[in-house]
């Protein structure tokens, strides 16, 4: 479990245009793209060839000082290039609509997972199993998954490129998304609705594993028990999206840097100061807005109930090592 999670590259996998699909519906979506692309290329080449031919044939010369044709219109011709694109467009509409419907209607037996988007991390909850994770969505292969999504602040958008799906995550209602992975692997999750400073760091990983691995993972939860604490902390630093706001190189970002913080006093917004020790770090993870460091906004989401005790200890150990 402690092994490094390598996310499949979007650029290197798949075709010239698309990343490798992880479900069969992507073939239909990509197919529509290639269909329109082919039609476009034929038309485009036709238009360009006509342009070039006309430019050469009818260029203004001594011999061709004025127009040789007086044609002002041709109803037949204009009808042709109204009706043919119209039919093509209606066909494309139908293709797109059909796939859209099947992409938005989940089968009844789907496994339900709750998704919460907040500035700037993704949290996943498995209501039946009582498991919560951050930045990592683990699902079994070949089983339909239904995501029920909500936001705690602004609008986000949950985007899975390898599955060609995306849905906005809204603060005032639940939106739904479903997919069924047909191969195992680690896939990229993006936030694709602009949500502020760390929008581009609001990433997560989708891990598609076998049914057996999934069961195993549910039992073990998200933390691996045998992994040394500082290494686990280092992994959690990116996995739990700490890195979107806290640097480890001493430069302040949205939140204070972790470098050289442990064991020192910091001033708080209320004018007092506090020693950064295990208790303060634990409190700041679980109830971050209780004591906010001076110069920063109280915007960190609370991690209470999301992180296990051992994971918090791991982060403390990691901070010590910086």
């Amino acid at each position: 479990m402690a092994k490094e999670v390598v996310i499949e590259s979007l650029m290197k996998s798949g075709s010239f245009w698309f990343p490798e699909g992880a479900t069969s519906i992507t073939n239909r979506v990509d197919g529509l793209f290639y269909f329109i692309l082919a039609g476009s290329i034929i038309l485009f080449v036709g238009i360009c060839a006509t342009l070039v031919y006309f430019l050469y044939k009818y260029r203004r010369t001594e011999a061709n000082p004025v127009a040789t044709s007086n044609i002002t219109h041709s109803t037949i011709l204009e009808l042709v290039w109204t009706i043919i694109p119209l039919i093509l467009c209606l066909f494309i509409f139908w293709w797109g609509y059909k796939d859209y419907l099947s992409m938005s209607t989940p089968p009844g037996n789907a496994l339900e997972i709750r998704v919460i988007g907040k500035k700037w991390l993704w949290q996943f909850e498995y209501p039946k199993e009582g498991v919560k994770t951050l930045g990592e969505l683990v699902v079994p292969v070949n089983r339909p998954i239904r995501l029920v999504m909500g936001s705690e602040d602004v609008i986000h958008s949950f985007f899975l490129p390898n599955f060609r799906i995306k849905r906005d995550v809204l603060p005032n209602r639940y939106t739904r998304l479903w997919f069924e992975a047909e191969r195992t692997g680690n896939f990229q999750i993006f936030c694709s609705e602009y949500c502020g400073d760390a929008h581009s760091a609001m990433l997560a990983t989708l891990r598609v594993v076998t049914e057996a691995e999934y069961k195993e993972w549910l039992k073990g939860g998200s933390g691996a028990s045998d992994e040394p604490l500082p290494e686990l902390g280092k992994r959690l630093y990116t996995k739990n999206a700490c890195n979107t706001c806290h640097s480890i190189d001493g430069s302040p970002s949205v939140g204070p840097t972790w470098k050289g913080m442990y064991g020192h006093n910091v001033s708080l917004v209320d004018g007092t100061s506090v020693l950064v020790d295990d208790a303060y770090i634990k409190e700041s993870i679980e109830k971050p807005n209780a004591k906010v460091v001076k110069g920063f906004q109280p915007i960190m989401p609370a991690y209470a109930g999301v992180m296990r005790e051992r994971e918090i200890l791991a982060l403390i150990e990691y901070m010590k090592s910086l």
């Binding site: 979506v29 329109i36 467009c89 509409f93 797109g96 859209y100 799906i165 995306k166 694709s192």
Partner: peptide, 13 residues
């Protein structure tokens, strides 16, 4: 391409 629903879902944003 963007007008087609299934493709727009992918390309949007």
């Amino acid at each position: 391409m963007l007008g087609a629903l299934s493709l727009d879902v992918y390309f949007h944003g």
